[in-house]
């Protein structure tokens, strides 16, 4: 079959919302785009373990400690499903990790912010997992089968994380003055970075159009960001917290909240490596990987010995 014909069949499948599977023909650019997006997502899951892992040993009750461990473990699991989905496109996990460590591959910038108090565990669950859900629910219908299926599992767990994070905030907001202050401070620090999670404005988003055509993306960055703001503001009101945006107000006409301008300079700075924890996060990942080299070598050597014995 000629490439044109293959491409035509591929486009028909996309139009009819028929899932593309690993063995199907696909345009090289589609494959590359998926690898970039899925690996970036996988990296975000495992780098995202670090800011929350920072508070596990200090969790204020045994119940919270267990929940925090389970949550961060879920994120590791998400990383695992997503690396596996990526491998169906013919790349190896080790090569993807090498790109993460060299800085070639990106991950969600939100994880370059520090976790400074226990309330950050609440704010991350509520806002960061909340924003992740907005981004990810449409991906359950992504055109590439393994990705869509991984996202179904991921989304179920993310919404649990979101509720759990909100519940931490609620407990703090019903607590002592110091706890309320902790909660407000966390919201102040995480609000804007959470809005940045949806990426640049539609006007500046270079991948949106092609990704929408291929059914990898379903809504634009600005649409998702608006949806997140609309859902989250009433939740902040229930908590009795103040969202740190003086321009925030309900727009009756649009039926949406208006909100202030994002500090795009900060956004692009964090993306390009100047966030408060960029170096620390990548160093931690590299160290885990490098320190683990002898363990992986030993496991391989042992598996080989076993395989030889079986043959003999």
């Amino acid at each position: 079959m000629s490439t044109e014909l293959l491409e035509q069949k591929f486009n028909e499948k996309i139009d009819q919302e028929v899932r593309i599977e690993p063995k199907d023909w696909m345009p090289e650019k589609y494959r590359k785009t998926l690898i970039r997006q899925i690996s970036q997502h996988a990296h975000s899951e495992i780098v995202g373990m670090l800011p929350e892992a920072n508070w596990i040993t200090r969790a204020p009750s045994l119940r919270r400690k267990a929940a925090a461990l389970a949550k961060v473990q879920d994120e590791a699991g998400h990383g695992l499903y997503l690396y596996s989905a990526c491998e169906t496109l013919g790349v190896e996990r080790d090569d993807l990790l090498a790109d993460l460590h060299s800085g070639k591959a990106k991950y969600s910038s939100i994880f370059n912010y520090p976790t400074l108090s226990w309330a950050d565990m609440g704010a991350i669950g509520w806002l960061v997992d909340g924003a992740a859900i907005m981004n990810q629910v449409p991906l359950c219908r992504a055109s590439y089968g393994p990705y869509a299926r991984a996202m179904v599992r991921v989304c179920k767990e993310e919404s649990f994380h979101q509720r759990q994070g909100y519940e931490i905030m609620l407990t703090l907001c019903k607590g002592s003055e110091a706890q309320k202050k902790m909660a407000q401070d966390a919201l102040n620090r995480w609000w804007w970075p959470s809005l940045m999670m949806f990426g640049p404005t539609d006007a500046d988003s270079k991948h949106t159009e092609q990704s929408m055509r291929w059914g990898i993306k379903r809504f634009t960055n600005d649409e998702l960001r608006q949806k997140f703001v609309d859902v989250t503001i009433p939740q902040a009101e229930i908590l009795g917290l103040t969202v740190p945006d003086k321009d925030l107000k309900w727009n009756e006409e649009r039926g949406h909240y208006d909100f202030g301008e994002i500090n795009w300079e900060e956004f692009f700075n964090v993306i390009s490596g100047n966030g408060p924890c960029n170096k620390q996060r990548i160093d931690a990942r590299k160290k885990a990987y490098d320190d683990g080299a002898w363990v992986r070598e030993a496991a391989n050597a042992y598996a080989e010995k076993k395989a030889k014995k079986k043959v003999a």
């Binding site: 495992i46 040993t57 045994l62 267990a66 461990l69 695992l80 320190d291 080299a293």
Partner: peptide, 29 residues
């Protein structure tokens, strides 16, 4: 074991370490 969380030598083993930590905290409770 919880100190390992996020720093394991292999993702699968990071999960295993966390899992054991979680079981132990559960037993302690």
């Amino acid at each position: 074991l919880a100190e390992w969380c996020g720093h394991g030598p292999i993702l699968e083993q990071d999960i295993a370490l966390t899992n054991i930590s979680l079981d132990l905290i559960g037993q302690a409770r």
